[in-house]
């Protein structure tokens, strides 16, 4: 009998690919944001509205992750920004190898901001480093104010939380202060933006947050 201690990280390979993405993006001065949420909370709509507002001032590109179809990439392509669709064929999250592959296929010359729309899922994507600078969690009012307590890991690893669909607040019993308190218990450092991607309400501070972090177009 013999026992060996190896202390080997199970996600080591993913972490190595993430490091390659990070190195590439650091070299080219690209800010990478990884968007996490359940399906239907409004990731693609937020991207459409954000791109429409920001693309004249900042060079942006998008990686779309979905279990099936390239519909979201088609929606983003209408904004005339570079976009690549990753279809995971059942996979519940993006991993860094997929992102590195997508990055190598894109023309990112001049791009300063890269959004990654992860697969809609509040559990699995939280464990996979994609080489991003910030994870951004999106929760929509229709999902209820208990989501931080039910999916704490995702709120813990994120730096920014977008509360979307605030236009629906009059019709729901979503308690905004309770949501904020729940999320802050898990992650006291979270930055919040309350927005409606549909009406555009609340988007200004979010856009300002983005623009303060990237180099504008020359």
């Amino acid at each position: 009998m013999s026992v060996i201690t190896i202390e080997r990280k199970i996600l080591k390979k993913n972490d190595q690919f993430a490091m390659e993405v990070r190195d590439f993006c650091a070299k080219h001065n690209i800010l990478v944001l990884n968007l996490l949420s359940s399906p239907g909370s409004g990731k693609t709509t937020i991207l459409e509205k954000t791109l429409a507002r920001i693309k004249t001032r900042v060079n942006v590109a998008v990686i779309e992750g979905d279990v099936q179809t390239d519909q979201d990439a088609v929606r983003i392509a209408r904004q005339n920004v570079p976009v690549v669709q990753i279809v995971t064929n059942g996979g519940c999250h993006l991993d860094a190898a997929l992102v590195l592959d997508a990055v190598s296929k894109m023309d990112l010359s001049g791009v300063r901001l890269l959004f990654i729309e992860n697969v809609g899922n509040l559990v699995c994507p939280s464990g996979f480093d994609l080489g991003e600078h910030h994870k951004i969690v999106i929760a929509s009012t229709a999902e209820g104010d208990d989501k931080p307590l039910k999916y704490p890991k995702t709120f813990r690893v994120s730096d920014v939380c977008l509360i979307n669909k605030i236009d629906l607040l009059p019709y729901l019993n979503f308690d905004v202060p309770a949501f904020l308190a729940n999320a802050k218990k898990i992650n006291p450092d979270l930055t919040f933006f309350q927005i409606s991607a549909q009406s555009g309400e609340g988007l200004d501070p979010w856009i300002a947050w983005l623009e303060s972090r990237v180099e504008p177009k020359q």
Binding site: S2, V3, E7, R8, I10
Partner: peptide, 11 residues
């Protein structure tokens, strides 16, 4: 943590 800590072998 998410790692393989130890392996035990037999001859």
């Amino acid at each position: 943590e998410f790692l393989i800590k130890e392996l035990e072998f037999k001859e």
